[in-house]
Every structure is written in C-alpha cells, then in structure tokens.
Amino acid sequence: MNELYRRFGSGMGTLFLALVAIWLGGMVLAPNLMMIDYALRPNLPPADIGGPRDVYSLDNILYLANESVHRAIFFKTVWASALVAFLTLVVCYPLAYWLAQSATPNRSAVVLLALTIPFWINEVLRTLAWYILLAFRGPLNALLLSLGVIDQPVRWYGDVGVLAGMVYAYILFMLFPIYNSIESLDRSQIEAARDLGASTWRTHWRVVIPHAKAGIATGCVFTFMLAAGSYVAPALLGAPGSRWFTEIIYNWFFEGGDWNRGAAYALVLLVLCLTVVLVTLRIFRVNLTDVAK
C-alpha cells in the first residue's frame, strides 16, 4: 500500500485503490450477497414483499435436499465435471509436455496458434460445430460407418456429446497452466533422470508431474469450475437423460419464475464447487496462491 502511494503519488494511488474496491465490492461481493439474500427469502407476490411472511429461512435449500430428481442431477453434475476435468487433463498433459519440452520453437508456436484460433469464435458457435459433427446423420457417424467401425448410426447427443463438447471447450484452460509449468522445468532434469536409467513413466511420475503440480491443479480447478457452471454444452449436446444442474437453475429463473429457489440452487452449487476445489488442493498440497499465479 505504501509502495503504491510512493510510486504513483496520493492521487493516482487513491484512484487505484478505489478501482480495486469498486471491482471487489460491486462485481464480486454485492452480487454474491444479493444471491444469498434471495436464496434465503421465500418467493412471494409483490404485495407481500417486506410483509410479515418475508422472513429468512432455509426452505429453498431444503427443497433441493428433498427433491430426489434435482438432487441426483446435482451430484451427477459434480462428478461429471470432475470427469471432464480428468479427461481434459489426460488430453492436455501429453500435448503440453510435447509443446514445452520436445517441440522446436517454430512448431510449438504453430500448434499453439492452431489451438487458439477456434477460441476466437464464440463458445456457442464452437459448441454448435460439435452439434453438427455429432448429429445422427452427421459427419462422425458417416465416417465411422464408411470405415466399418459401426453398422448403425450412433446417437451421440447425451453424456458422450456433453463430455466431448466440454473437454473441447475447456482445453486451453487446462493446456496453458500445465504448459507454463512444464516449460519452466530445466531440461537437464529430464535428461538426468534418463541418464540415471529412469523409464519414461518414472521420469514423468517423479520429476515432471511433481514440478508441474501447481499447473495441473490450476488447470483442473479451472476446468472443474467451468464445467460445473457450463450451460451451452449440456443444452445443445445433451439429451433429456443428461441434464445439467445449471439447466435446472435456468429453469427456476426463466421458466418457473422463482428467482429465490434458483438463487438457492446456485448457492448450493457454488458452495459445493468451492468445497471440492479446496479439498482437492489440500489433497495435492497446493496453495490457493500457487493457483492464482
């Protein structure tokens, strides 16, 4: 704080502090407090708001606990998001390692650019591309049929479609943290491990992964949070059997018109995601500050 004032003077220093305060207060704290406020109040006709029935209670949250279909979708969303994070990790780790340690600078620049270009397009449009690819009479089925892998077109929409769409949508959020952390690994450590006779597997398990742990945790946290809060992929690529919890929240707000119950559902999702993230970080002994970097 003193450093800020010393460097920018009192006028600019105060301005910076005010901007940070507005950001935190107006864009982080206030919306969340409002959500908590909504979640704890009953859904009342306008006339009753502020009246004797407008009291805080846990009714909206308890409703979720007692509603078995919503509860099942909720837990499914959580573990499916974890699965998305894991699959994205499996796809990204080898790619990140190759980009950071094996590829020539030119090649890795080209590949990184190629990976980034699709992200210049809106997420909805990118998901629509998958919608076309995975269609019943779409290119993927046509390809597999012509190769003889399948003899009947497959209905991809549903769990498979949602997983594919999400892994694709969040690949960069996983790739870049891991790439950055592997890139900072001194090449000679990998060579030393090899020189001492370590197999590829052991070199990764004992040298590369421990070094990249913070990056891997960061990528997994990002991907998990984004997947749990995702709406587009399940809405477009899902089937009735693969509903996502965000769709239920959406329905409460825009179909059911019950903002209070919607806010309560969103709050539960937020709390559970935070818990999963903090527990995961604890298990892998990574600090939240490492992730923030």
Partner: peptide, 19 residues
C-alpha cells in the same frame, strides 16, 4: 541411449531434483 550406457553425467546446472 543414455540409460543403456555405463556412464553417468554431471550436468552444468547439476540438475538435482529440487522436490
């Protein structure tokens, strides 16, 4: 390869495993 030779190398950076 380096893992199949009766040699061991000491690197300029030493390359100790810090963790």
């Amino acid at each position: 390869g380096p893992d199949q030779r009766p040699t061991a190398m000491i690197f300029q950076s030493l390359a100790l495993f810090p963790l």
